[in-house]
C-alpha cells in the first residue's frame, strides 16, 4: 500500500510516542499517506488504522475532523487561500478573487486539466504577511499580490 519511504516516515512518527500509544501517530501517518497518494483514500485510511492497530472508524474520525486531509482527489496543486479577517484586511479576499478569475474556478473546485484545486482556508498564523496561501499543505506563500500569484502559477509545473 505504501512506499518504503512512507513506511519509514510512519516508523519515525510512531517512535515519538510511548509504545502503548501508537495511535498518537495517526495524524502524521494520515498526512504522509496523503502526501504519497495526493489524497486520502478509504484504503489508505484503513491501512493506516491497521498499521497503528486502531479501529478504522477512529482513524476516519480523525481524517474527517482536520481540515487539511483531502478525502477526495484534488488537483496536482492544491492552493489554500486565507480569507480570514486579518488577511482580508490586507488583501486576502482580493487575492482569492484574483486566483478564481485566473484559474476560472471557484473555491472547492479543480481546474479541468486537474492541475489546480482552490480552497478557502482559515487563519494560517501568518497574518502579518497577508495575503498568504499554502500550496499542497506544505509550502506557505507570503505577500501574494498579483505579480506573486502570477509567478506562483507559472512555477507550478
Amino acid at each position: 500500500m505504501f512506499s518504503a519511504e512512507t513506511l519509514q516516515k510512519f516508523a519515525r512518527e510512531v517512535a515519538k510516542y510511548p509504545a502503548i500509544h501508537k495511535q498518537s501517530a495517526v495524524m502524521a501517518c494520515l498526512a504522509h499517506a496523503q502526501e504519497e497518494n495526493g489524497w486520502l483514500s478509504p484504503e489508505s485510511i484503513e491501512a493506516v488504522a491497521q498499521y497503528l492497530s486502531m479501529p478504522v472508524m477512529a482513524a476516519f474520525e480523525v481524517a474527517t475532523f482536520y481540515n487539511m486531509y483531502d478525502l477526495k482527489p484534488v488537483g496536482k496543486f492544491k492552493i489554500t487561500v486565507c480569507t480570514n479577517l486579518p488577511c482580508a484586511l490586507s488583501g486576502g479576499y482580493h487575492a482569492g478573487d484574483y486566483l478564481q478569475k485566473k484559474l476560472g474556478i471557484g473555491y472547492g473546485e479543480t481546474t479541468a486539466d486537474g492541475k489546480f484545486t482552490l480552497k478557502e482556508g482559515e487563519c494560517m498564523g501568518a497574518c502579518g504577511d497577508a495575503p498568504v496561501m499554502i500550496v499542497n499543505n506544505r509550502s506557505m506563500c507570503s505577500h501574494m499580490h498579483p505579480e506573486q500569484i502570477d509567478k506562483l502559477l507559472e512555477d507550478c509545473q
Partner: peptide, 10 residues
Amino acid sequence: LFAHHGYGAY
C-alpha cells in the same frame, strides 16, 4: 522532546 504536527483545526 518531540514535535507533533497538527493538521488544520483551530
